[in-house]
Design a protein around this nucleic acid. Structure first.
Length: 281
DNA sequence: ATCGGGATTGCCT
DNA sequence: GGCAATCCCGATG
């Protein structure tokens, strides 16, 4: 059964990711070239993005981000960690207080619009706008599914010569890392994830409700200067997944947030059973 | 025109 | 775990 298989895979830690690379390596030939009928079936349309920010942030978990590069190669990563940034009251959001600037224009565009912004002068972060004025979801980590060799080349290009090779699980485990690995450029800012020919989101037939219902909700990271708003548990990640960028042990002791409404028959898992005895390194 | 900070990462101790 | 890298963007004058 898919659910059980996936649970074991998550528990296997980094071997899980390596195993997936082999699987997807076989897939790679089939996938190359133009969009297949399968791609079109799996692609998520604009309706998917039409939900409130926190709901969308959770619904993204288990979905697959795809970038079809200029040479036709497709890079795929399964989303395992997100953060919700509401507009208005949320002081940690670029759109706090309804503030609109040239930079954050995409946050106010229709749900599904990509918001890419540069940070620390060196890096990029990718978000997707949701319902709600100025609200968007930050994509923090994805699990590499396809194109790992390209991802590794892109990631290691910026690293010191002679540095050790990155493990698969380190290719995309951070908001700027995933932009680098999937070759997401600033030019994707303001583009529509629901209709763009080069970048889109897919459902993953191998992701089970058992996995997407086992979500950890933790405070967002890197925003501690924003007081109360920094404490809101609006970072979401798949419990026990090896590609999550920062674990929060305290949050993992808390009961899970409610089930996500994006899967059919979503409640075949008991809440908070503490399963997935994952070994992390 | 200038200034200060930042939704991060990687290297070094 | 500390801290430098590196520069865009938004605010201010």
């Amino acid at each position: 059964m898919a659910g059980k298989k996936r649970k074991m895979a998550a528990a296997a830690g980094d071997q899980d990711v390596n195993k997936r690379e082999k699987q997807t390596g076989e897939e790679e030939e089939k996938r190359s070239g133009s969009l297949t009928g399968n791609d079109l079936q799996l692609r998520l349309g604009e309706e998917f993005f039409q939900q409130p920010c926190i709901s969308l942030a959770k619904a993204f978990l288990g979905k697959v981000l795809v970038h079809r590069c200029a040479d036709g190669a497709e890079l795929r990563g399964r989303i395992v960690e997100t953060e919700a940034y509401l507009g208005g009251e949320d002081q940690a959001s670029h759109s706090a207080g309804g503030k609109r600037t040239k930079r954050n224009t995409a946050m106010f565009m229709k749900p599904g619009t990509i918001y890419v912004y540069p940070i620390y002068g060196i890096h990029l972060c990718m978000n997707v706008s949701s319902e709600g004025e100025g609200a968007a979801v930050l994509l923090r980590s994805v699990e590499p599914l396809q194109g790992q060799s390209v991802m590794r080349r892109l990631r290691e290009a910026r690293r010191k010569e002679g540095a050790r090779q990155l493990k698969d699980k380190e290719l995309c485990n951070g908001p700027s890392k995933l932009c680098q690995a999937l070759d997401i450029p600033r030019g994707f800012d303001c583009r529509d994830l629901a209709s763009d020919p080069e970048v889109w989101l897919e459902g993953d037939p191998n992701t089970s409700p058992a996995e997407t219902n086992n979500i950890v909700a933790a405070p967002r990271v890197g925003i501690k200067s924003h007081g109360e708003w920094a404490k809101k548990p609006w970072r979401f990640y798949l419990r026990g997944h090896p590609c999550v960028s920062v674990l929060n042990k305290e949050a993992e002791r808390q009961p899970q947030p409610g089930n996500v409404m994006n899967d059919l028959g979503s409640s075949d898992v008991q809440p908070d059973t503490g399963q997935n005895h994952v070994k992390r390194t």
